[in-house]
Design a binder for these strands. Structure first.
Lengths: 197, 197
DNA sequence: GGCTATCTTGAACGACTATTCCAAAACCAC
DNA sequence: GTGGTTTTGGAATAGTCGTTCAAGATAGCC
């Protein structure tokens, strides 16, 4: 019926993600995206609307591949405490491999959410809440198994962990030292320990 | 000998800080700064060099007034554990009053440190390290008084708290809900508790 | 083969960017 | 008042920004 697209959408998103992740939304120009994706300006606009929409698509793809999947897809009989440790350690490992210290795209965007970008604000908030939900479930199982303290509710502990993850991501960017990140994870986990050890 | 400046440097910095804080470095234009400070473009460049230098001056002033002063200026006989709680609670209080959710200028900049701004990167890193140093001293006193766990070194615990503070600041921006922030502080403090309670 | 619908292309758009420059104004020391 | 020095005001610069648009290219359907 018509001329078909000559590119794979996900490939374009991956290349665009690399640029956005590396330079941030504001510092990324359309020209950067044209260079990185190989697409023409017109094709970009035709396929993704404008820069903000393209960024939104990139964020969706980033979230779909994020470490939170680790928690959601774990088998029910996995140790909740170990699962959380793996999650935090995963953040640290990612930081170790991230030689140019890009950090986490979601955290960076959350901290850089300037102006009145209402859509992205709610996207971020909902993303954090859904991570909170997943963590809350894991924590509840952990409390039932006696692996995690009952001094706080699963919800409160989940919020604590979401915040801790944001902290780790900021540190990974600002002071990307493995010793530091290890110390952070170790002490973050201590807050989860049951009273009687 | 010559014509004197017609403005107070600190007043200009305060106004510039408000804009940078609200919109971020990239989204703040010289025109915004001209409007906010009341200074003419020429005067701005004459007094502060360029945009990056002005921002650096703003950051210096921000740091000088930051909550870390609370820790450094506390009397030696103050309860270290209470001091740390006050520090974290101070972040939450600031978030409560911050109706437009600007968060922490340092954290925002740390997470948004894109490109190769070497000077600002090291400024951020040194700022975080100096906060780490102050916290480490407080923690050491707390350990001596039995208020804080000895399971980790003061340095490791300090790093944990620096990271926790970054997390709180990100959350204050992304999900500025008082209940959430309270839960985070409560559980952050638990990691400091001595084993025998 | 023509028709239609889509994608691609590259130039062009106006608006905004940070920065520079220079004449005019304002002050101080003499 | 005068000379010397700095600030000031505002125009001007050169560049980049995100976006649009019209023409050309390519495919399937009748």
């Amino acid at each position: 019926m018509a001329r078909p697209q000559e590119f794979e959408v996900n490939d374009v998103l991956d290349h665009a993600m690399e640029v956005f992740w590396h330079k941030g939304f504001d510092d990324t120009s359309i020209q950067d995206l044209v260079d990185a994706t190989g697409l023409n300006r017109g094709s970009l606009y035709n396929a993704f609307g404008d820069k903000a929409h393209l960024f939104a698509d990139v964020m969706d793809r980033y979230r779909a591949h994020s470490l939170a999947r680790l928690l959601a897809t774990a088998p029910d009989d996995a140790s909740p405490r170990q699962l959380i440790l793996d999650f935090l350690q995963g953040l640290v490992d990612r930081a170790r491999c991230d030689t140019d210290h890009k950090g986490c795209l979601i955290t960076n965007t959350a901290a850089g959410l300037y102006g009145c970008n209402e859509h992205m604000s709610t996207w971020i908030r909902q993303t954090l809440i859904s991570l909170e939900d997943v963590l809350s479930n894991v924590i509840e199982r952990g409390q039932q198994r006696g692996e995690i303290t009952r001094q706080s509710s699963p919800r409160a502990l989940a919020r604590y962990l979401v915040s801790a993850a944001q902290g780790i991501n900021v540190m990974a960017r600002a002071k990307p030292c493995q010793d530091t990140l290890r110390d952070i994870v170790t002490n973050t986990m201590r807050a989860l320990e049951p009273q009687s050890s």
